[in-house]
Write a protein that binds this DNA or RNA. Structure first.
Length: 207
DNA sequence: TGCCAGGCCCTCTTTAGGGCCTT
């Protein structure tokens, strides 16, 4: 099987009506960045109309208003376009379990599957950047001086910041292991290791 | 009316509890 590199993937972020599709929550915006050799080569961004109003907390938290969603394409149309964009790429998100459950939920509604696996920048940074004050996306972006102007809690900007964080994490791993190429499975191995022994596990993985 | 996530991780742990992260 062809090696899958950790710097070739699609970074994904959803804004949603709430925390759980199991409670009827839906996606309202998707943002994504395709990385090739760690460089952004393509982006995807769209608001989507979930067919019901979002509450005032979500309007304030994201800056996405009901008025903005009125003119947006319906979820099915946007998710079909994203599915085409994604192709067979692996995926990355900050707290991937959250974005994965919304991706799975929205794609199941249009009978689409995807082949890629998810990496998680939150789990990885808890190992590799264990000295960070906390592991919220905004904090890590400041901690590693990755800052750019933009609006956190909008999907494309968060995906772009997650992409920068991931490249920074890969740089740290590369420096610690003295290797050039980092495969996707190595990063999965690190994210599943403990804070104390991730480097040991990573070295075992490449030997 | 009342309810309201879930997976990960640490520790004063494993017969559990609570904080962290995502919207």
């Amino acid at each position: 099987m062809e090696t899958q590199f950790a710097d070739d993937l699609v970074v994904l972020d959803f804004e949603t009506t709430g925390l759980s599709p199991d409670n009827g929550d839906r996606a309202i915006e998707i943002g994504a960045v395709r990385l090739r050799k760690g460089k952004p080569v393509d982006t995807f961004q769209a608001l989507m109309n979930p067919g019901r109003r979002v509450n005032s907390f979500i309007e304030q938290y994201t800056g996405i208003t009901n008025r903005m969603l009125q003119s947006a394409a319906p979820n099915a149309e946007v998710m079909e376009a994203f599915w085409q964009f994604l192709g067979d790429d692996n995926l990355l998100a900050h707290n991937a379990s959250f974005d994965k459950k919304f991706l799975d939920s929205e794609l199941s509604l249009i009978n689409r599957n995807y082949a890629g696996q998810f990496a998680c920048s939150l789990l990885t940074s808890r190992r590799v950047f264990s000295d960070a004050p906390n592991h919220r996306l905004g904090t890590l972006v400041s901690y590693k001086n990755l800052n750019e102007s933009g609006d956190f809690h909008r999907a494309l900007f968060d995906a772009q910041m997650t992409a920068k964080l991931w490249v920074s994490l890969l740089g740290e791993v590369r420096a610690n292991l003295a290797v050039d190429d980092i495969d996707f499975d190595l990063m999965q191995c690190i994210s599943k290791a403990s804070k104390r022994d991730w480097l040991v596990k990573a070295k075992q993985h490449i030997n």
